[in-house]
């Protein structure tokens, strides 16, 4: 039996906000340690992995590992009509009914909404994702997630976001991280300097650089990755010329959401 409760729907609403526009379905793995979610977009360019440890839940009962594929678009619709302070209960029996029940209860007027979701096939997830050693990355940049989202929006409005493969080039040296894109009639470069601790900003931009690196990524996907800002106010971008880039948002000591995408390479 699986029975979880969150006294605030906010966390799950934010999770769906962070993944449901790029990913249409996801694999949910419930085990004693918590929930591990994985999803891949239909063209297999991006993969997202989310971990919510059992402590993130106000009540967590999972006496047998349970894995299920769920449609994220349907879930997002259900969660959109939930209020932030609704109490969510998630329940599944292993009675082979292949459904999971989400119950939303609004504390003020006791109204209850119940949604049953049928399990769906998941396209190829879960995958085994190795933890690559830090040394494999030429550079890691930590910055405010709101800043990263603003940069993606600026580049998208400038780049010909209409056409499929608008590319953004992320370059890191020891002083700053640059975001560059080419539009129809020109180019745009956004330079983020590493903040000096003396500035004592509430949210620093920090760079760990082993060697200079400059990699090209699909801007549309990067834009979708910036939605992780609903879950954390910091994002860490790990860059390597021969590994998928990792855009990681730590969820206040209960887990993380990580988006993976390979750099684009010269034809």
């Amino acid at each position: 039996i699986l029975e979880l409760r969150l006294v605030q729907a906010t966390l799950f609403k934010n999770v769906l906000e962070a993944i449901s526009d790029l990913f249409s379905k996801a694999n949910f793995d419930f085990s004693g340690t918590g929930l591990e979610l994985q999803a891949m977009d239909t063209s297999h360019v991006a993969l997202v992995a989310l971990l919510l440890r059992a402590e993130a839940f106000n009540h967590y009962l999972c006496d047998r590992d349970l894995s299920m594929g769920l449609n994220l678009a349907d879930m997002a619709k259900a969660f959109r009509c939930a209020n932030n302070d609704d109490i969510i209960t998630i329940k599944a029996e292993e009675d082979w009914s292949d459904t999971v029940t989400f119950t939303f209860e609004s504390p003020e007027d006791g109204e209850i909404s119940i949604f049953d979701f049928d399990f769906v096939g998941t396209n190829g997830v879960p995958l085994e994702i190795p933890e690559f050693p830090e040394s494999e990355y030429q550079a890691k940049v930590r910055m405010p997630s709101a800043k990263f989202m603003r940069i993606c929006k600026k580049l998208s409005s400038f780049g010909d976001s209409g056409d499929r493969d608008t590319v953004v080039i992320i370059s890191v040296d020891k002083e700053c991280v640059n975001f560059f894109t080419r539009g129809k009639t020109g180019t745009s470069t956004i330079v983020c300097r590493q903040t000096q601790t003396v500035d004592k900003p509430k949210e620093p931009t920090l760079i760990e650089m082993k060697e200079q690196v400059s990699l090209a990524f699909d801007l549309r996907y990067m834009n979708s990755f910036s939605k992780g800002s609903t879950l954390s106010d910091q994002v860490t971008i790990s860059l390597s010329s021969n590994l998928p880039a990792v855009f990681e948002y730590k969820i206040a000591e209960t887990g993380y959401i990580r988006y993976y995408m390979l750099p684009r390479i010269e034809e």
């Binding site: 360019v45 993969l47 994702i129 493969d165 998928p244 750099p263 390479i265």
Partner: peptide
């Protein structure tokens, strides 16, 4: 131009 690698084949190859 540049081309995009497939994340699934990358992780499956590991």
């Amino acid at each position: 131009g540049t081309k995009q690698g497939n994340i699934m084949s990358f992780f499956k190859k590991m």
